[in-house]
Computed example of a mutant assay.
Amino acid sequence: MAAITSKQVQVPHGPEAKLVNLMAPVEQRAALVASCNKRFELSDRNACDVELLCVGAFSPLEGFLPKEEYESVVNDMRLTNGLLFGLPIVLDTNSEDIVPGDTVLLSYQGQDLAVMNVTSKYTPNKPLECLKCYGTSSLEHPAVQMVAMERGKYYLGGPIKGLALPTRVFPCATPSEVRATLPANQDVLAFQCRNPIHKAHYELFIRALDAPNVREGAVCLVHPTCGPTQDDDIPGVVRFRTYEVLKEETANPRLRWAYLPYSMHMAGPREAIQHMIIRKNYGCTHFIIGRDMAGCKSSISGKDFYGAYDAQEMANKHAGELNMQTVPSLNIAYTEEKGYVTADVAKAENLHVLNLSGTKFRQMLRAGEDIPEWFAFKSVVAVLREQIQTAPPRH
């Protein structure tokens, strides 16, 4: 059982077990803005990181990593004090004008989000960062391409104070808000995803609630990432709509739903650790982890960058230190004879397994064909069909 606080919920990450809140009091915000001598426009990814820092999802961090902390996380997957941390949280820029000592107003799409005291400006070793964090420095990896081609020449480090959270079309509950919805003294499983949820996924997290290391009465926090991800993924706004209709269709009292403004790195094992730390801060005690979690393929050869169980092994290795438990997601198959069963049962009983690939599913959506009810929820199909028929063609 994971440790709990006096309020009988999971402790936040860090030696002080304290949920960070970087939002400045309302009466201080005008003075903070007035103190700024520079302005900086955030990218979509930057804005996600600012929001997660401000609400405490990256507890115990209080800002973007300075050089020594960045290098420690890159090389050792730990902060300089030894605390486990999966991926470096950095603010990138090409600006020659911003220097240590500056007070910078961080804005996003016309909205002032935070004020940053710049304490560090450095040129990162991007090839080393990619090799250590993603296991490769090849541009065939989407995050390597992001670091090399999207991120600026310099990284800025320093503490931030929040002014406002980004205005989004979907609400992203803060860690404290999510914690307020969780049952006291009870196991809370986290289910991470970045795609629409189909029936096999649903079976995974419903069955995980009955895992041997999960207590009776546990709940599952379905916590999809809705920030930027791979170019060919379904847009976050559309994914959000699929989750909302599914929440209504299933109306399952053992589920909690929230949305995470996190930008995926597809970093496999390292990202598994990052996701566990974030979900720990949201109050979860258990993390459901599947095959090839946060994995990706070469954009040229199609070869997987990570082994199917690399992320699970990394998560299991550090679960105790993170004060969490892992629940491996079952390998589920749909059979004509018995519906959804584990793949082992399907094989042992020689059952007839039905399959539908993601590519075939998308083709059927475009063509207006009926989608098998065993594969997808009707409500989700309706949202996806509307999106796929109105989206501009890809070139």
Rank of each mutant, 00 (worst) to 15 (best):
S35R: 10
E27Y: 09
L19K: 00
L22F: 06
C54Q: 13
S72R: 05
E51P: 04
N46C: 11
T80K: 14
L65V: 15
A47R: 02
S35I: 06
P66W: 04
E68A: 15
H13C: 02
F85R: 08
L79Y: 10
L32M: 07
G14C: 11
A30S: 14
L52P: 04
M23K: 12
Q8K: 15
D76I: 00
R39A: 12
V33R: 01
K67L: 13
N46M: 05
A31P: 03
V50P: 13
S72C: 14
L42N: 01
K18I: 09
N75I: 06
D44H: 10
V55A: 06
P15N: 09
M23L: 12
L19P: 12
Q8L: 15
V11D: 01
L42Y: 00
N75A: 13
L53Y: 06
I89D: 00
T80E: 02
N46S: 08
Y70K: 03
V33W: 02
Q10P: 03
L52Y: 02
E68C: 02
E51V: 10
L42G: 09
P15F: 01
E27T: 10
K38E: 09
V33P: 04
L52N: 03
A24I: 02
D49C: 05
L83T: 09
A31Q: 12
S35F: 05
S43N: 06
I89W: 01
Q10I: 09
V50R: 08
E62G: 15
P12R: 03
S43W: 09
L22G: 01
A47P: 14
V26M: 07
R39T: 15
A30V: 03
N46H: 15
C48W: 07
M77D: 05
L19V: 06
R78S: 13
P66R: 00
A24S: 09
R45K: 14
V20T: 08
C36Y: 01
L32G: 04
V9L: 10
L22K: 03
R29P: 07
L53F: 09
P66E: 11
Q28T: 11
A57E: 04
C48R: 13
L84Y: 12
F58W: 09
E69K: 05
L52E: 00
H13R: 05
M23I: 06
L22Q: 02
F58D: 10
V11H: 01
N21S: 10
E41Q: 12
A47Y: 05
A34E: 10
E51W: 12
S35W: 04
S59Y: 05
V20E: 08
P60K: 05
Y70M: 12
E41A: 15
L42D: 02
L53I: 13
G86E: 01
E69W: 08
V74I: 15
P66T: 11
C54V: 10
N37G: 15
L22N: 01
E69T: 11
S43C: 08
V26R: 00
G86W: 02
N37K: 03
F85H: 14
N81K: 04
Q10F: 01
E69P: 08
L53D: 06
V11Y: 00
P66H: 04
F40T: 07
L52Q: 03
E69A: 15
E71G: 09
N81E: 08
P25G: 07
Y70C: 13
